[in-house]
Computed example of a mutant assay.
Amino acid sequence: MNFDFLFSNLPQLTIGGLAFGAIYALIALGYTMVYGVLQLINFAHSEVFMYGTFAMLWTVMALGGADAGGIQLVAILIAALFAAMAMSAIIALLLERVAYRPLIKKDAPRLIALISAIGASFVLAELMGLRDRIAGWVGLDDNLSEYVGKARINNSMAGVLDAPRWEIGNVTISSIDVLVIVAAVGMMILLDQFVRRSRLGKGIRATAQDPETAALMGVNPTRTIQITFLIGGLMAGIAAFLYMLKIETTKFDVGFLLGVKAFTAAVLGGIGNLRGALLGGLVLGVAETWGSALFGTEWRHVVAFVLLVVILLFRPTGLLGESLGKARA
């Protein structure tokens, strides 16, 4: 164990861990929202995130981000943010309509809905991984070769953004890391206030707490579920945008491991708790970064899941175990 390396680079490692944890937290918000209302895990949410990363990448490519700079680059990145949010929101709404709503109407067991979510996850990932063949079937593979090529390997936008860095003592702070952390905290606060204070948010909380009574009081459950999936998709789109700014690379199966980590963050903080999703993501990101410095990078994922097991052994409800429906106003 390399304690010297850990303690000598602790501030740098902590900042990097918080940045990764913030991305986990934004994805975890989607898991938390859906679980809070439907009491089931949307395992296809990781692919909602993945489609957002490609929307970000393709928008930057289409608008010539590699050759842009200054105000033009800022405008392109803003367009890419909206494209990522729109793509993720559309995929999330399609998931709700195709994979969940028919089962909810039939009052199917939650296990069936879980299997449906897993199936939808594989379908969405493979559709992206076979996009070159799909384009070939409709005769567009030549026209879209830049976008459908390298369908099953890494797609990169490296070199588009040369983010400034600041030196504070022996610590190098990237503006991207600061942006990711601030954005995650800001979005969690906005979402938390939306759920607690807005009319739609109160409808979500009422449905999460007692769907039958909420329906009798005039809350449309179908609309509430749609809004919940929409919000989760928007959060995934923002997470996808920030992930691409930081990592700059995506792949058709990029959502799998990140989705598992985000789900871990949601459980760690207290599944169904918005503030818990943020806390769980940040704790997980820092813990796995410290663990990889201490034990080696090959232990990064091991540390993350061992932490989850330890937390659940001593506090099964998570750090802030509290359901969305019972959240305090």
Rank of each mutant, 00 (worst) to 15 (best):
T207E: 05
R152G: 08
I271V: 06
G259D: 09
A151S: 14
D162S: 14
F263D: 05
A214V: 14
A214D: 12
L245Y: 02
V219R: 02
L258G: 12
Q226C: 08
G232I: 04
G233W: 04
K261D: 14
M187K: 03
A184I: 03
D253H: 11
I189S: 03
A266I: 02
D177P: 04
D162K: 15
G255K: 06
P164K: 14
L257E: 10
L216V: 15
T264S: 12
G159R: 07
Q193I: 08
V267Y: 00
T250H: 09
N154T: 07
V267C: 00
F252I: 04
L200V: 13
K251W: 13
V171E: 00
G218Q: 13
V171T: 11
M235C: 08
D210F: 13
K251A: 10
A239F: 15
F263V: 13
G237R: 03
R275H: 04
R199P: 11
G269Q: 01
P221W: 04
I173A: 10
A214P: 13
D162F: 10
W166L: 05
V178L: 11
F241A: 12
F256Y: 14
Q226F: 07
G270T: 00
Y147Q: 04
K246R: 10
M217G: 10
S198R: 10
S156N: 08
S174V: 13
T224N: 11
V160S: 02
A265I: 09
A184Y: 01
N154G: 10
Q226M: 07
W166M: 15
Y243F: 08
R152W: 14
T249L: 07
I181P: 07
I173Q: 07
L257Y: 15
A262R: 08
A183G: 01
D210N: 15
T250E: 03
I189P: 09
V219N: 02
K261Y: 15
P211L: 01
E248V: 09
T172M: 06
M188P: 09
V185L: 04
G272L: 01
G232N: 01
K246W: 03
V182A: 15
Q193R: 14
I181Q: 05
V267A: 00
S175E: 01
G218N: 13
M244E: 03
G237N: 01
I181C: 04
A236T: 09
I189A: 09
R223N: 13
K251Y: 11
N154Y: 12
A215T: 15
A262K: 08
A208R: 00
M235Q: 06
L234D: 00
T213L: 15
A208V: 00
R199D: 04
G270R: 01
L161G: 10
M235D: 01
S174A: 11
